[in-house]
């Protein structure tokens, strides 16, 4: 589903964010990425989303080579990916429900169908009662869960999450992980970046460990 072939990414300053990364994530596989901050976790997710292009090597997602994907095809590529961002990327001028509805509106779903799916997604993250509230009035953890609901609402084939449990207490973290596991069980591929090592260890999934842009370990924690 996701394949990195010898991928490197340099920024304009010359420093390498990622160097010679190779790995593959299968359909229905859930993989963690860990590493201290600045190790390249976010860059990895940005490459998969097409927010950045690799400097060398190939990034293949769902059969298409992102280096060769024309600019106007990138939106369609992103529609197949549900992404949870570390800074949530919510819109503060609209309600929780409208935030979650965004991917469906863009994909052109009927308003009624959109409402139904939005409520289902909010129910999954335990925020159905707050659908009419504005993100500003939510706690950091609640905002994060709104971001998760938005990522899963369009039933993507790939879910990427940058520190999805960063602001959540252990109980909520476990709930969110359960939601991710449900998606895994129906064949969705997930790549979760986290530096919460205890959670990662406890779940015992395949883990990619990055250090200074290099993949230093790939295996079960």
């Amino acid at each position: 589903m996701i394949r990195f072939d010898d991928v490197s990414k340099h920024y304009a300053g010359g420093q390498a964010a990622l160097s010679q990364l190779s790995f593959e994530i299968a359909r229905g596989e859930m993989v963690f990425v860990t590493g201290h901050s600045g190790a390249g976790k976010s860059t990895l997710l940005k490459l998969i989303l097409g927010m950045e292009k690799s400097s060398a090597g190939q990034v293949l997602v769902n059969g298409s080579n992102l280096n060769r994907l024309p600019r106007n095809k990138i939106p369609y590529h992103r529609r197949g990916i549900g992404a949870v961002f570390q800074d949530h990327q919510l819109l503060f001028d609209r309600s929780v429900a409208d935030n979650v509805a965004l991917p469906l509106q863009i994909a052109g779903f009927h308003p009624q169908e959109t409402r139904r799916r939005v409520r289902a997604a909010l129910d999954k993250v335990g925020l159905l009662s707050k659908e009419k509230m504005f993100p500003e009035r939510l706690s950091g953890g609640e905002q994060q869960r709104v971001g998760i609901a938005r990522a899963v609402v369009n039933r993507p084939q790939i879910i990427l999450a940058d520190e999805p449990t960063g602001n959540l207490d252990p109980e909520l973290s476990a709930d969110v992980m359960k939601v991710f596991e449900q998606f895994k069980s129906v064949g969705v591929s997930l790549l979760l970046a986290s530096h919460n090592l205890s959670l990662v260890k406890q779940l015992n999934y395949r883990t990619l460990t990055l250090s200074e842009g290099r993949l230093i370990r790939d295996g079960r924690s």
Partner: peptide, 28 residues
């Protein structure tokens, strides 16, 4: 909180045409 992620409602409506989608979007 624990409904299957792809548990579709039984009354899934017929696939809307591209024209319909465009119309809803434009109206909104």
């Amino acid at each position: 909180m624990t409904r299957g992620p792809h548990a579709r409602a039984r009354h899934t409506r017929p696939q809307p045409s591209a024209m319909d989608k465009l119309l809803w979007q434009h109206r909104a």
